[in-house]
């Protein structure tokens, strides 16, 4: 049904976001090459990428996609500060979200934290508690600061460098740890 030689073709754009596993992947790490951080994936530490990303799992720490769109899926549970070009929330976020373009909280989305973006859309039925800062330019300024704080080479790296407390790595597959919604 799926031919092996079609699985990976460098240079050919894929339909969805793709995330490469860290190079120093241990046996406990999971290749999330589908572009989605799956339901059973728990990441503790810092997650950054230079391509669009969808999170269905759990992330504790920090998420940075300065030039890309981050989608937190219905099963996604984030306890982190989030920084991206645009953020779509369908799951649960505990932490501040900064976006240089837009934050979109869908009807099933839940955010406990502060939002900073020039455009914020909150659907009817969404849960939100925190503050909203839509002052023009402010999110961009924050973006600039965040970009300066990130090494350029790392920011453009099409991978997911992760740092965390876990010595063997921070991305772990933990079947059964998917957050219940």
């Amino acid at each position: 049904m799926w031919k092996k030689d079609e699985a990976v073709k460098p240079g050919i754009p894929t339909d969805g976001p793709r995330v490469d596993a860290p190079r120093n992947s241990g046996s406990d790490m999971v290749n999330v090459g589908t572009g989605t951080i799956g339901k059973s994936v728990v990441i503790k530490g810092e997650l950054s990428a230079s391509e669009d990303l969808a999170i269905e799992g759990q992330v504790d720490g920090k998420v940075e996609l300065p030039q890309n769109i981050l989608t937190i899926g219905a099963n996604g549970r984030i306890k982190a500060s989030v920084f991206a070009k645009a953020v779509i929330v369908q799951g649960e976020v505990h932490g501040n979200i900064t976006a240089t373009e837009k934050i979109d909280i869908r009807d099933a989305g839940s955010v406990d934290g502060d939002l900073a973006s020039p455009r914020v859309a909150i659907a009817d039925g969404a849960h939100f508690r925190g503050s909203i800062d839509m002052q023009r330019g402010k999110a961009g300024e924050t973006a600039g600061l965040a970009l300066e704080a990130t090494k350029p080479a790392e920011a453009l790296k099409p991978a997911v460098p992760m740092t965390g407390a876990a010595p063997a790595g921070v991305a772990t597959a933990a079947p059964g740890t998917a957050p219940a919604r």
Binding site: V120, A121, G130, D133
Partner: peptide, 14 residues
């Protein structure tokens, strides 16, 4: 949220 932002350019706590 949109209304207050456009009308007042404010920071909004909910």
């Amino acid at each position: 949220v949109s209304f207050f932002s456009e009308r007042l350019g404010c920071k909004l706590h909910v």
